[in-house]
Structure formats: structure tokens, C-alpha cells
């Protein structure tokens, strides 16, 4: 860990300005990821701007739905009665991640900025394009069990490790950000990006932009009954997803009015494909229909050796998750 200066932000705008003006400055909130990365010498900020004193902790109803303050902790959010009742998929996804101690510290805004768990990203002895642009990707021909099978590029096959974000993608949340040029709202699907030839960039924010809140749309409440978050991993707790599926159905009898399916552990961002979801519109909730969705979602998937099994696993997980959602098994 290098030596760095630390400052506590007292306003969003000044904090944003401070980081946008200094390329080696970074924000810190719960610190559950960046502090580890600094100890590993992977992140080397010269300045940390602490956001935790900003008034962004509230979870509140708005005319659009439910708004999660960026500094609400994962634990507070998962156990919030409104979230549990109206967006239980989100609650379930959050509780599938990390550990109780980490969820107590981690914030909702910070969760969006988790960096990949690719082994090579964490090990400074090995090349990694995400850590050192241009150094090469060790994972493509190396050990890639945790790596992606969809939307990968020649320069990076890393995945986004969040569980919470998979549910947010399925619920079509929107993210409110404030930067030096003012406020804007970003669709969740547009928040994270695919690696392309700039794998060092995880998301589409501009320098200095701060997530202030996340909006859960009111129409997401339709999915409070028939949903599931299915996380497949190498142990029953405290492990990142090999594949996870957030599945949500709006049913009329056994006919599907609308379906949402998002995948975690397979790509550089939570993976959604609206055309695949549309295959279920007006259709019966049958295994065959679910298999068609799975096939469509995994179209173009590519394995890299130790993660190739994820293609078949993801297909089976999608069918299972949708079946569970129909049956009201969470």
C-alpha cells in the first residue's frame, strides 16, 4: 500500500470536483473492496475522498418507486421492509453475497463499483489488461474458472462479481449520478460496460461522477411474487457466483405477461437480453419455453477452458430459476 492523503467530503459537488481534477484520486465509501486492493498494491490512489458523511443514506418512497440512497448499506437495504415486500428479489440477491460483516459495511452505491475477482487482476506478478492496460490478459489461456463466457474481448474476460447488480438489472433500476456537469440518470443496462479494448474501464461514468441514489421502478413490484435469485458457487456461502440468475415473472394464471432474466458471473456486466425475455411474452410457463430463453441468452457464449462448463450450467440454471419463480420458490 502506497502512502496517500485522505479527505472527508462534506458536499457531493466538491467531492466530485476534487476527484475529476485529480486522476489519481478515488472515492471510498464502505471500503470493502478498495482497501483490499490497495493492500494488494492493485489500486494506488494518492488521495482518497471519503463519501460516508454525505447525507445519502436514506431509503425513501418517490413518485417513481423506491429510492435507495447510495450510502444505505447492503444490510440495511436487504432487511428494509419496503424492499423485502416490494422488491424481494433485490433483498435475496444482496443476502446471497459476501458475509454479514461485509454487508454491514458495504454500501449500495459502492456495490456497483466492485472490481472483478479475476485471479490475475489481484496478482501483480502476472500481466492483466484491466490492472495494467496493454500488459496482456493472463486469464484467456490460463485459469479462468471465475471468468466470463459472454461479451468477452481479446483483451479481457473478467466478470463483474456483484449479486446485487444482477437483481438491479432484472428490475430495470436506474442510477442517479452527480458530476461536475450536473445530475443525470443512467439506465442500469447502460451503467456497466463490456471490456472491449478498454478493460480498465468498468462502467460508463465520467471522471468524478458520484452515484447518489438508485431508483427501483414502481412497476418492478409486479415481480414480488414470482421471482428467484439462484446463485451457484463452489461453497454454500462466502463465494462469488460461478453463475447466478435473477428471474422474475409477471404471471396471469400460467401465462407469462412479462419476464425478466439477468445473469451474474458470466460477463463484464450483469447480462440481460430483452429479446430473450420477449420470447416468453404471452407464452405458457413451460420447460420448453424456458429452454428457448436459455438458448437465446447464451447465444454466442464462448468458454476458455476451465470456465467452459458455465455455458451449460448457465442454461440449466436459467431453466431452474424460471421454474422456481413460477412455483413461487425463492
Amino acid at each position: 500500500m502506497n502512502s496517500f492523503s485522505y479527505t472527508r467530503a462534506d458536499a457531493v459537488e466538491t467531492a466530485s470536483r476534487e476527484v475529476s481534477n485529480n486522476q489519481t484520486a478515488q472515492f471510498v465509501a464502505g471500503g470493502t473492496n478498495i482497501l483490499d486492493l490497495m493492500k494488494y498494491n492493485v489500486e494506488r490512489p494518492t488521495r482518497l475522498v471519503d463519501l460516508t458523511r454525505l447525507p445519502l443514506k436514506e431509503i425513501e418512497d418517490t413518485d417513481k418507486g423506491l429510492r435507495l440512497g447510495a450510502l444505505a448499506t447492503n444490510a440495511t437495504t436487504a432487511y428494509d421492509e419496503r424492499v423485502e415486500e416490494r422488491y424481494p428479489l433485490l433483498s435475496k440477491a444482496i443476502l446471497a453475497g459476501a458475509s454479514a460483516q461485509l454487508r454491514n459495511m458495504a454500501t449500495d452505491g459502492g456495490n456497483l463499483f466492485q472490481r472483478t475477482r479475476c485471479y490475475y487482476f489481484y496478482d501483480t506478478a502476472t500481466p492483466c489488461n484491466k490492472r495494467e492496460p496493454g500488459s496482456g490478459c493472463s486469464a484467456i489461456n490460463g485459469y479462468n474458472r471465475v471468468c466470463g463466457i459472454l461479451g468477452t474481448s481479446e483483451s479481457c474476460i473478467a466478470t463483474h462479481p456483484s449479486d446485487m447488480c444482477v437483481a438491479l438489472a432484472a428490475l430495470k433500476a436506474t442510477v442517479n449520478v452527480t458530476g461536475t456537469e450536473g445530475e443525470r440518470t443512467v439506465e442500469f443496462a447502460d451503467f456497466h460496460r463490456l471490456p472491449g479494448n478498454e478493460p480498465e474501464r468498468d462502467n460508463n461514468l465520467k471522471p468524478g461522477e458520484i452515484v447518489t441514489s438508485i431508483d427501483l421502478p414502481a412497476d418492478g413490484e409486479r415481480f414480488a411474487k414470482n421471482f428467484t435469485y439462484l446463485k451457484l458457487r463452489d461453497r454454500a456461502s462466502y463465494a462469488f457466483a460461478l453463475v447466478s440468475v435473477a428471474a422474475a415473472l409477471d404471471l396471469d394464471g400460467d401465462t407469462i405477461k412479462e419476464a425478466r432474466v439477468a445473469l451474474g458471473g458470466v460477463a463484464h456486466k450483469p447480462w440481460r437480453k430483452p429479446e430473450a425475455e420477449d420470447l416468453l411474452k404471452g407464452q405458457k410457463a413451460t420447460k420448453e419455453n424456458f429452454e428457448r430463453v436459455a438458448a437465446s441468452l447464451l447465444e454466442g457464449a464462448k468458454g476458455f477452458g476451465s470456465n467452459t462448463f458455465k455455458i451449460e450450467l448457465a442454461k440449466r440454471a436459467i431453466v431452474r430459476a424460471l421454474t422456481m419463480a413460477v412455483n413461487g420458490q425463492h
Partner: peptide
């Protein structure tokens, strides 16, 4: 769960932390 995974190209154990070297947890 347990395996120390070698990247034979680097001759290096790659899952050298307790997040990626899985040992049984209470839930198991």
C-alpha cells in the same frame, strides 16, 4: 472444495487467498 490451482504457464498458485481457496464454511 479444496485445491491450490496452479497456472502452469507462470508456475504459480493463483487462488492464493481465502476468498478463492475455498475451505468449508458453516453453511456447508
Amino acid at each position: 472444495e479444496e485445491e491450490s490451482v496452479l497456472d502452469h504457464h507462470f508456475g504459480r498458485f493463483m487462488n492464493h487467498n481465502l476468498a478463492e481457496y475455498h475451505v468449508a464454511v458453516n453453511a456447508d
